[in-house]
């Protein structure tokens, strides 16, 4: 491409189209950010605890945050979710990597069949299992106040189903690497640990990140399992119970906003730090699923 050969008319056109694109991007950014800006403003409103028709509070203050941490069980919910998130991110990553690596790079009898079974299992709506999972956990005494280990168990146990993105990533690594290592006498285990894993940093971090974030948003299963016990709730269930009836919505709405902000901040920071890997994971793996 030789810039000098371009006509001036083309350049003007280019500039015009770029301006249009900038305009669109700016409008989009505003639309995408507005709800979160609103959320933050509402969380600082002191003069009323319910929904109002304006954005900027008449009186700023940390009351909602203070109430959130002193008058509700929010610290417990936060701790629960954090614990779940940490355990799940570690165990789930191991499981997903095992699953996807095997299906992507090892060839064995029944591999196709296994993948087809997984695919067909995914056609069933997950909600069907809620009741039975809840009952089984309740007999194992892993509900109510003990729901943290119960939820970890359920999240982790079925996590093998979500191997697609990471398999897509492994598919892109050239098979000649394995073959070369095998010729050198490496066992399959050594190929996995010494050859492939070092190349897989983006997908490992991507898997950890998504596994960690999952429990923060899970609502339905967590609601069932916590069984109305505050000590066993995660943030989503806890915040939802805070606004579940009209009366409690009126009393707790701004506190709910504050809770939303508190939950969003650490995850957003984490996300910003690891965004590079997240992007690589999605772009590298997702489409192949």
């Amino acid at each position: 491409m030789n810039e000098n050969k371009k006509h001036m008319g083309l350049k003007a056109k280019e500039r015009l189209s770029n301006t249009v694109i900038y305009a669109i991007l700016i409008v989009m950014s505003i639309v995408w950010l507005i709800p979160f800006v609103f959320l933050v403003f509402e969380s600082f409103r002191v003069e009323s605890t319910y929904q109002v028709g304006y954005v900027i509070p008449k009186q700023f203050g940390f009351d909602n945050y203070i109430n959130l941490f002193t008058k509700t069980d929010f610290p417990i919910w936060f701790k629960n979710t954090l614990v779940i998130g940490l355990f799940v991110s570690v165990i789930q990553t191991v499981i997903v990597l095992c699953m996807s690596y095997t299906l992507s790079r090892l060839r064995f009898k029944g591999r196709k069949g296994l993948m087809n079974i997984m695919l067909v299992l995914g056609f069933f709506p997950g909600f069907l299992s809620l009741v039975i999972l809840y009952k089984v956990l309740s007999w194992l005494n892993l509900t109510s106040a003990n729901s943290v280990p119960g939820l970890i168990l359920v999240y982790v146990a079925s996590s093998g189903m979500g191997y697609y993105v990471s398999k897509g990533f492994f598919d892109t690594i050239s098979r000649s690497l394995d073959e070369a290592a095998r010729v050198d006498g490496a066992t399959r285990f050594q190929v996995f640990t010494k050859v492939i894993m070092p190349l897989s940093k983006p997908i490992v971090i991507y898997t950890i990140l998504t596994a960690f974030m999952g429990p923060w948003g899970d609502f339905m299963l967590a609601k069932y399992v916590s069984h109305a016990t505050s000590a066993g709730m995660n943030v989503a269930v806890g915040l939802q119970t805070m606004i579940s009836t009209p009366a409690s919505l009126a009393a707790n709405y701004t506190m709910f906003c504050a809770g939303g902000v508190v939950v969003a901040i650490p995850i957003t920071i984490l996300f910003m730090c690891l965004q590079k890997y997240y992007v690589e994971g999605v772009t590298g793996g997702a489409v192949k699923g």
Binding site: S48, Y50, Q51, V52, G53, P246, A247, L249, A250, Y253
Partner: peptide, 24 residues
């Protein structure tokens, strides 16, 4: 189509509700 005391803060002049809303 709502019936909670907080509706007064959002432009309601009449709210049909019960005793639980009295404080709001």
């Amino acid at each position: 189509d709502s019936g909670s005391g907080e509706d007064f803060s959002k432009g309601s002049a009449v709210v049909v509700s019960g005793t639980w809303d009295v404080n709001t």
